[in-house]
Amino acid sequence: MVDSLIVSVPDSRLANAVGDLPDAVELVEWDFEGAPPRSRIDLVVPPYMGGSSRIGRVAEVSSRLVQSQSIGYDGVDELLPEGITFANASTVHETATAELALTLTLAAQRGLPEFVRNAESGTWKSRMTPGLADKNVMILGYGGVGRAIEDRLLPFETTVVRVASRPRTDDRGAVHGVDELSELLPEVDILIIVTPLTSKTTGLVNDDVLSALPDGALVVNVGRGPVADTDALVRHATEGRIRLALDVTDPEPLPEDHPLWSLPNVLISPHVGGASGAMLPRMVALIRRQIDHLLADEEPENIVLRT
């Protein structure tokens, strides 16, 4: 057992939500802007937005664990000081991200962007739309978020093709390896990208991948913008060969004069995959579990990096 624990959170909103803690735990606020409030902070929770880019500041304190508020941690390994244990926010964002992936997919498949534009001019214009039932949907990047997306797709009577970095078999059958993409893509109606950003996945969805998709296919990206080649996306969407529903782009934020904004077959949301009312209570639950682990001198959850 540990006699005392100091925990930092970035703002009063999260501090108030965490609520009462054991007497052995001191909760302080540190937003990575000013000096750290203590020289020792056992559990550091960085800001949700922009926290990763300033993660080097944990070198200013003695720490046992840095608990991110994001699932993704691309680039953190290059900025994290030596001797730090870093955990991601698995269990916090999977459901919300899956909700948005399904929302974007349904909206694009049922023509909602066009209907919204028509409503602005008072135009009543119906048409047949592709829909979701009976479609072949590929989930590219089958982890926790990918499985949550699959859970929501199956009741819509879809066929789900799952692709990960390496092939494997689980309780739902085969998970294909990424090296099988070229064989699988010609039969895919909807490609949902949820893979994390690494050196191997940067630019993974390139011109060759997009060209292998059938005409009229929908590409949904709720992973990371640089996983897809933006120039290739613009070219294929401009030609009208594919449709896009993007929660993430490269660059971010997308400049107001970027050609993706003006294409009628492109739907864009501003990187809000995890931004739902479920985030705060789930983040609080994770922080409190990590506190319990540290007090009991146990291994924390979700460790993804040790430097």
Rank of each mutant, 00 (worst) to 15 (best):
M1N: 09
V2T: 14
L5T: 02
I6D: 00
V7F: 07
P10L: 06
L27R: 09
V28C: 13
D31I: 09
E33R: 13
P36C: 10
P37D: 06
S39I: 06
D42N: 13
P46R: 02
P47L: 10
M49C: 08
M49L: 14
S52C: 10
S52R: 07
S52F: 01
S53R: 15
G56Q: 07
E60F: 02
S62Q: 14
S63H: 02
L65N: 02
Q67D: 07
S68D: 08
G72Y: 04
V76F: 02
E78M: 12
L79T: 09
P81Y: 05
T85L: 08
F86C: 00
F86I: 06
A87V: 00
A87N: 00
N88K: 07
S90K: 13
H93E: 04
A96C: 09
T97D: 01
E99P: 01
T103I: 12
T105G: 03
A107E: 11
Q109L: 14
Q109M: 15
R110S: 08
R110M: 12
E114S: 13
F115A: 13
V116F: 13
S121Y: 12
T123C: 12
W124Q: 11
K125C: 09
S126E: 12
M128C: 10
L132R: 00
V137I: 14
L140V: 04
Y142E: 02
G143Y: 01
I149V: 15
E150M: 11
E150A: 14
D151E: 15
F156M: 10
E157D: 15
T159C: 06
T159L: 02
V161F: 03
R162P: 00
R166V: 11
P167L: 08
R168H: 14
S182E: 14
E183Y: 08
D189R: 03
I193Q: 03
V194L: 02
L197F: 12
L197T: 03
T201G: 04
T202Q: 13
D207E: 15
S211N: 13
D215G: 03
G223A: 06
G225R: 00
P226K: 07
V227I: 09
D229C: 01
T230H: 04
A232S: 15
L233C: 07
V234F: 04
H236F: 06
T238G: 13
T238A: 15
G240V: 12
L244G: 05
L244E: 04
L246S: 00
L246A: 01
D247E: 11
T249N: 02
E252C: 12
H258T: 05
H258R: 11
P259N: 05
L260D: 02
W261I: 09
S262N: 14
L263D: 02
P264R: 12
P264V: 06
P264Y: 04
L267G: 01
S269N: 12
V272R: 13
A275C: 12
G277T: 00
A278D: 11
R282L: 12
M283G: 01
V284N: 05
L286W: 01
R289W: 04
L294E: 01
L295W: 05
D297T: 10
D297P: 08
E299S: 12
P300E: 06
R306A: 11
R306T: 13
T307E: 12
